[in-house]
C-alpha cells in the first residue's frame, strides 16, 4: 500500500510538469489552431536560461534558497516569453493567411532549428551539463512516505500557475479577447481586437509556462542538454490532446493522467521497459471512446 501512495506522489509530481507544458500547447492551439512544436524547445531554453542566470543571481539573492529560485524562474520565464514572441513574429506571423499545414511544418522546422543550433559547440554543445541546485534538497517524511521538497514545489507551482492562467483567460480583458479570437478570428478583428497583440500575448504566456516547467524539470533531474525537451514535450502534447486540445483544465487533467499512467506502468517489474507502450495504449483507448479528449467538446465540421 505504501508503494501505491509513493507512486501516486511520483506520478502527480511528473504529471504536474506535463500539465504545465501542455497548457502552452493547448493555449496556442485554442487561438491559432495549430500545434507549436517548438514549445518543447522553449522548455529547454528555459532550463538553460536558468543555468546561465543563476551564477549572476547568486550575487544578489542567496542560492540555494526559495527566493533566489523564484527570481531565477521569473527571469527565465521573461526571457522565454521574449523568445516565444520572437519565434511567432519571425516564423508563424508571415504564414498567418496560409493553410494550417504550412504553419505546422514550419513549427517542426523551428523546433529542429533550435535543437540543432543549440547542440552546436559554439552555442550550448550537446553534452549534459550539471544544473545548479537552486533549492536545498530535503526529504520530507509524510506518514511513512518519503517526499522530496522539490516534488512538493513542483505541484504547488503548477496549481498556482493553473489558477493564474484560468483567471487570466476567464476574468481579464485580454483573456476575453483570446477567447473571442479562438471562437472566430475574423469576427474578433471586426470587433476591434488587435489580433497580432493577442497572439503575441498567447505565445508569451505559453512560453513563460514552458520556461517554468523547464526549470522545475531540471531541478528534478539536474542534467540538462539541448534535446531534453523532446521527451516531456511529446508527453505534454499527448496530454493536451487527451484532455481535449484547446481546453485549459483538460490539459492539466491530461498531464496528470499521463504522469500517473507512466509512473504506475514504470513501477511494475518486468514491464517498466514498456511503460510508454502501456501509457499510450490506454491513451488510444480513451481517445477511441472520446475522440475530442476527456473534456473536449465534439464539434461538427461544417462542409
Amino acid at each position: 500500500m505504501d508503494s501505491f501512495f509513493q507512486q501516486l506522489v511520483n506520478g502527480v509530481a511528473l504529471g504536474s510538469i506535463y500539465a504545465l507544458i501542455a497548457l502552452g500547447y493547448t493555449m496556442v492551439y485554442g487561438v491559432l489552431r495549430f500545434i507549436n512544436f517548438a514549445h518543447a524547445d522553449i522548455l529547454m531554453l528555459g532550463a538553460f536560461s536558468a543555468y546561465f542566470l543563476s551564477p549572476a543571481i547568486q550575487q544578489i539573492f542567496p542560492l540555494p534558497g526559495i527566493g533566489g529560485a523564484l527570481v531565477v524562474m521569473l527571469l527565465a520565464a521573461i526571457i522565454c516569453a521574449g523568445i516565444g514572441v520572437g519565434v511567432e513574429f519571425c516564423a508563424y506571423r508571415p504564414l498567418r493567411k496560409r493553410p494550417n499545414l504550412a504553419v505546422l511544418i514550419t513549427a517542426i522546422g523551428v523546433s529542429l532549428l533550435i535543437e540543432y543550433t543549440c547542440q552546436h559547440r559554439a552555442v550550448f554543445g550537446a553534452e549534459t551539463r550539471p544544473f545548479p541546485q537552486l533549492i536545498a534538497e530535503r526529504n520530507l517524511d509524510l506518514v511513512g512516505l518519503t517526499v522530496s521538497n522539490l516534488d512538493v514545489l513542483v505541484v504547488v507551482m503548477t496549481v498556482i500557475l493553473l489558477v493564474v492562467m484560468w483567471l487570466v483567460v476567464n476574468r481579464t480583458k485580454i483573456g476575453t479577447a483570446m477567447r473571442a479570437l479562438s471562437f472566430n478570428r475574423e469576427a474578433a478583428a471586426l470587433m476591434g481586437i488587435d489580433i497580432n497583440r493577442v497572439i503575441s500575448f498567447t505565445f508569451a504566456m505559453g512560453s513563460a509556462l514552458a520556461a517554468v516547467a523547464g526549470v522545475l524539470y531540471a531541478l528534478k533531474a539536474p542534467g540538462i542538454e539541448p534535446l531534453m525537451g523532446i521527451h516531456p514535450g511529446l508527453r505534454a502534447f499527448v496530454a493536451a490532446v487527451l484532455g481535449g486540445i484547446g481546453n485549459l483544465p483538460g490539459a492539466s487533467l491530461g498531464g496528470l493522467i499521463l504522469g500517473l499512467l507512466e509512473t504506475f506502468a514504470g513501477g511494475i517489474a518486468g514491464l517498466s521497459n514498456y511503460r510508454d507502450a502501456i501509457a499510450f495504449s490506454i491513451l488510444i483507448l480513451i481517445l477511441l471512446f472520446r475522440p475530442a479528449g476527456i473534456l473536449g467538446k465534439n464539434s461538427v465540421e461544417k462542409v
Binding site: S3, A13, A221, M228, T263, F264, G266, G267, A269, S272
Partner: peptide, 23 residues
C-alpha cells in the same frame, strides 16, 4: 529481488526506483 529497466536518456526514474526500494 527486483529487475527493472530504464531507457537511456530518461530523466525521471522515480517509478522504477520506488519499486526497487520496496523490494
Amino acid at each position: 529481488v527486483a529487475e527493472l529497466d530504464y531507457s537511456g536518456g530518461d530523466k525521471d526514474f522515480k517509478a522504477q526506483l520506488t519499486t526497487i526500494k520496496n523490494s
